[in-house]
Design a protein around this nucleic acid. Structure first.
Lengths: 199, 199
DNA sequence: GTCGTAAGTGGACGCTGTCCACATTAGCAC
DNA sequence: GTGCTAATGTGGACAGCGTCCACTTACGAC
């Protein structure tokens, strides 16, 4: 059922996850859904969790594909950039799932956070920890920039699929790179020069 | 009609703008709406334009309330911060309108951009031009950071009403300030020290 | 005064989420 | 094996939604 919902979400975002259509795909009658989810919103929440996991997986993947050692200045910088790149790539390639992952409207605090899986933000924190260990980022600076960094990447992903949607693909890619450069310049000059001109 | 829609949007975001309810508020029968808008989406687009104008107005207001001269380093820095603050305040105080302003799903390129009014992005650009004229920001740097700056503010506004919604108001305010500081640190150290610790 | 256009009306259609009562099935105690 | 219980699925209904069609009314140009 969640699987069927994911397909709908992938194709058309959260609004495309219509309960009756999900049950249709699964081959049961609409009311059967209420045996497993209290609500359409609850079903959507399950799908959202799945979409978030997919995003997190992509980020982990991106990080693991960086060959440079994680303790080196360059390796740490590249890792941060890879995390951001994966985030932006997911939003670009799976817009429906991305939207679904971040549409809250959550009057459902029931499915709160017993989430054992790693979240996208966890991966960002890991990358920043790397930078601290590599000596590129001052330890006390991390807590004040982690959320702004997330905001920059998330905001760019959102804007590109909102007001900036009419831009060409080429322009969009350029803006993605600018966002990553911008983060680099705020994290520290060394990390920036290390990570720039790579992707 | 747009006015009635704005009230619904203010109270419940774009999904609360249900065509039949709008016509109910206005005192006509649902079909009457189709004499003025081809579609629910067209009505929503009109409401969205209005919401965007309101946001732009708030930003202009915030900028105008900075007393320091716009040509001084401090004045220019404060102006940039004021623009960002207004953006975040609008998202915090008028979440319904903010969501409405930025939910696109626009298969309606009809109401494209004959918009004579100033957009939120226009105000950000004006603030950055100020920084260039005040000598704080290198002219060639502006085009590569304008969109990332927008993304940072927009992303923080979005995240605070999404995954970060459970945070306390105090924590949210702190993150808003962090986002503005982050932008300051990326624009240039001088602008940062000028703008920091002000609010 | 006739006519054309803009605005509103009335009724219907198919779709949605959700509720209720009922039927089927699986697992398990004895 | 029989009987009980819990889980799962079914059928029918309801109100609400966006939208389409044909019809009526108000009004300004000529």
């Amino acid at each position: 059922m969640v699987q069927a919902g994911l397909e709908l979400a992938r194709a058309g975002g959260p609004d495309a996850v219509v309960l009756r259509e999900v049950t249709r795909l699964v081959g049961v009658v609409p009311n059967a859904a209420y045996r497993h989810f209290s609500d359409r919103e609850a079903l959507l929440a399950a799908i959202r969790d799945e979409a978030l996991s997919m995003l997190a997986l992509r980020m982990a993947d991106g990080m693991n594909h960086v060959s440079a050692g994680s303790q080196t200045e360059q390796g740490a910088g590249l890792r941060l950039r890879a995390v951001g790149k994966a985030y932006l790539a997911f939003a670009r390639e799976e817009p429906g799932l991305f939207d679904t992952a971040f549409t809250s409207a959550h009057p459902h605090p029931s499915t709160d956070r017993p989430s054992d899986r790693q979240t996208p933000f966890d991966h960002l924190q890991a990358a920043l920890d790397n930078l601290v260990q590599a000596g590129v980022l001052a330890r006390e600076r991390k807590p004040v920039i982690e959320y702004p960094i997330w905001a920059t990447v998330h905001g760019m992903a959102t804007l590109l699929r909102g007001p900036l949607e009419p831009l060409t693909d080429r322009e969009k890619r350029k803006l993605e790179a600018q966002a990553l450069d911008f983060i680099g310049s705020a994290v520290g000059p060394e990390a920036e020069t290390a990570g720039a001109r790579v992707g």
